[in-house]
Write a protein that binds this DNA or RNA. Sequence first.
RNA 1: GGCCCCGUCGUCUAGAGGCCUAGGACACCGGCCUUUCACGCCGGAAACACGGGUUCGAUUCCCGUCGGGGUCACCA
Length: 533
Amino acid sequence: MVRTRFAPSPTGYLHIGGVRTALYNWLVARRHGGQFILRIDDTDKSRQVDEALRPILEGLRWLGLDWDEGPDVGGPHGPYYQSQRAERYRAAVEELLRRGAAYRDYALPEEYEQERRQAETEKRLFIYSRRWMAESPEQARRWEAEGRRPVVRLKMPRSGTCRFFDAIRGWVEVPWENEPDHVVQRSDGTCLYHLANVVDDFDFQITHVIRAVEHLSNTPRQIFIAQSLGYPLPVYAHLPFVAEPGSQNKLSKRHLDRYLKHPDFRKLYDLGEAVFRKLGRSPDPLVMNPVLVDFYRAVGFLPEAVLNYILLLGWSWDDKTEEFTREEMIERFDLERVNRAPASFDPAKLLAFQERYMKRLAPADKLPLVWPFVEQAGWTTYRHNAPQSWWLRLLEAIGDRLKVAGDVLQFDEFFVADDQLVYDPEAVKKHLVADEARATLVQVRQWLLEVEPFEAAALEQHLKAQVQAAGWPLRRVVHPLRVAVTGKTVGLGLFDTLELLGRASCLARIDRALCLSEQMRTTPALADEKPEG
RNA sequence: GGCCCCGUCGUCUAGAGGCCUAGGACACCGGCCUUUCACGCCGGAAACACGGGUUCGAUUCCCGUCGGGGUCACCA
């Protein structure tokens, strides 16, 4: 039975790199019909573990990475929180002591540190003298009487090499003498991460330890602990880290400022910010950060797209295939095809996946995605009585312009009341102020009164015919009309726009636009200002 | 600094001695389509870090150099 695990610390956020680690663990488990376990590394626990854990669990659920054992679902090997397993770790330390693989060290931190520094100045490899290693109970009592409190150190081998197989890197060798006598239990009796980690992996019967390379250099000591305790070794697989856009540095949530100088990253961020602005939400730094998964959920990305992108961050199936359904991922994923070199996070490619996936959805599929955003923006009221067919028409007309679900909010001209529509001053200046534009609008207003039914096809047919009869170029009508009814120079197809707004709104907005145009002409400050040519 | 890991187009990658005139994708550039925007279509530029070996033959194997990164806690 294959059993893998993901072991996040409750930090309050889920990082792209973390998701990839979770995904690969999940895939290995699912591929082999095994189990995926979630364990919480809260050894130095803070009060609000639940609070700090929520974004992580929600993120994993959003992406569909379900776990078989762990928080919320329980399981036969629990508890799954390290903070609740302290007794178990202490027992393991006792066992290590009993087997002679560890010792109580009564050195004061300064004393140990001094030896270390001494070696450093002499430019030689530091090997602890073990001078304060308690050789007998009497000696221990004596030192305790002096007020010394021991830590427990691993009695690491001092010759030979630690050789282990890594499913991604192959054989890795490191001389044992490079490994110091690591502490496994503090002087206050609490145990350290590496000990806990090994004990948990054994207790949970983890068969594959798949984690970031940062842990590669921790592996020898963990192997020592495991072997000393008589535990079987899991299969190790160390994933390269995920690098920053355009660099080889490890991606971190802390350097948002620097990443924003990267144009593609900036574009992604701006997209999210635009959504937030329309929602009137202030940008929470734990959400408004494309390094964190919460960002994608908040902005309306499709989890399948995000997951597909992350899958390819260090793994590929062949020289052509880029898209994978959940089933295909499970069927094809293999640790042996994971790359050794770090892969840098490419915001543009992520966006490309999102666009590709979104483009395939029918309006009826997009509606439930988009709806929460419309609701949050409080825009359901203006057209609250619009039938579902109106919404489907709107989404159809928006088409590929909808990159993420939150993008609906950019089409606010369809949601605001006619007298609330905001006109872009540049657009007005460019397309509404000229005499010709005003005359055109007056004429078009008339034509709009005649069209029946007030639908895109009929509108297009009628307006085009009238324009041709008048001997005008189509653009003479299109641009002023678009600005008049939407306030913008860009948007959906014009005839779709007219239909969706409905006749009454169109007429009302044209009237407003004409007023606005009049004001512009008679206000010298505005009229004199020449638009950039 | 010690130890460990890594090095193919700007980015993600294919390549496991001849299939390579180094393939695909994203981004980029040019053109077409077009009522704006987005989409779409066509085309283009773009890489084996360097130096030695091994071999009839190296992007692929070995060594070195250079470059990048990780790690060296009574943190996780």
